[in-house]
Design a binder for these strands. Structure first.
Lengths: 193, 193
DNA sequence: GTCTATAAGCCGATAGAC
DNA sequence: GTCTATCGGCTTATAGAC
């Protein structure tokens, strides 16, 4: 019952996540994160060696929650494999219509840090997407689809494409188009099985 | 024969484009752009009211060249409609393997400026993608495809998805997967025509 | 572990001369 | 139209007290 009080470190990461996602990595200063967390900058630098480490901690903290959400949407959906796959996009479209939605934090960070390919935050983002892709591939393979890996890649491309396009146009209906395309590709793979 | 010498303004935009694309908008200072262009900051601010205006000019200058490249790739490809569509992805994969490739400047800028939805640079990026989508829709419609608009949207999603995913993983083979998915969707639309 | 205070430098933008 | 010089503020990160 009694939930452990958040540690200072967790408070800082939570504030960083909120600000980095809302405004972007380079647009948010360490000062702003410290102030939002209610600690001084000195305390923040006691817990994190650098801003880069804080960025990495922000994305690290989003990895599992995001993956679980996608799985939940998939598993909760009725219908065949194509409909369950499409459900991810439909749910995402609903989320994207919220005014605070600003795309995918992993992709936006990798876009912002494109000139630092080895940055820890980019590694974490890449690992996150690989985990999602591997989960999809497993689901498709268990359904008896032949080239499950390729289908998983294509669905990932549609998903990340919809993140990018919806962010640019602020039109969540692109996510529904992506879902329809995904469903069509799944059906084609099912019938070729 | 005699090619007009580049105006100061053009020189500045060219330097800005190089630096903004290579390093990101917020990572590049106005000082750096001025120095790369070989002018003082005062001169830069004579030609541009603000950094935001300079960012907009950078993307404005990329609009037509990028669109023309995609059209060229499409038109130069042999084969049916599906193969011509796939050719865009194959050519893009080749470009993406160049070490200086850093994704799509329009999408990266929109990711970086996600907290400023009305920013002129985002408007220019959105218009650019809409023009591309409209061209695709026209090509598909002329081929007699029923829901040409929806197919164009799906292909745009695959294209922009491949920009994002290839930038994150530094693995251009995702573009070839996107191309295969696009070809499959085009073929499905062709046979349902 | 958390504080106050500050270093050392870079940021976007501007003043005024020519 | 381009220059030199500089503004005030913000940046990441650190020193040293408690």
């Amino acid at each position: 019952m009694a939930k452990a009080q958040k540690s200072t470190r967790e408070t800082i990461v939570a504030s960083a996540a909120k600000l980095f996602y809302a405004q972007g990595i380079r647009a948010v200063s360490v000062d702003a994160v410290a102030e939002a967390a209610g600690v001084t900058k000195r305390t923040l630098y006691y817990h994190f060696e650098s801003k880069d480490e804080l960025i990495a901690a922000y994305l690290e903290g989003r990895d599992q929650p995001n993956l679980l959400l996608f799985r939940k949407w998939f598993e909760a959906a009725d219908g065949d494999l194509a409909e369950k796959a499409e459900a991810i996009f439909v749910n995402l479209a609903r989320a994207a219509r919220h005014p605070k939605w600003k795309g995918c934090g992993f992709l936006r960070t990798s876009a912002e840090l494109a000139n630092m390919p080895g940055h820890p935050a980019i590694r974490i983002g890449a690992a996150h997407k690989k985990t999602f892709e591997a989960w999809l591939a497993q689901v498709f393979a268990e359904a008896g689809i032949n080239d499950a890996g390729e289908l998983a890649r294509q669905m990932l491309l549609l998903l990340d494409g919809s993140f990018a396009v919806v962010l640019l146009h602020r039109d969540a209906s692109y996510m529904e188009s992506a879902g329809k395309a995904a469903a069509m590709l799944v059906r084609a793979a099912m019938s070729a099985r």
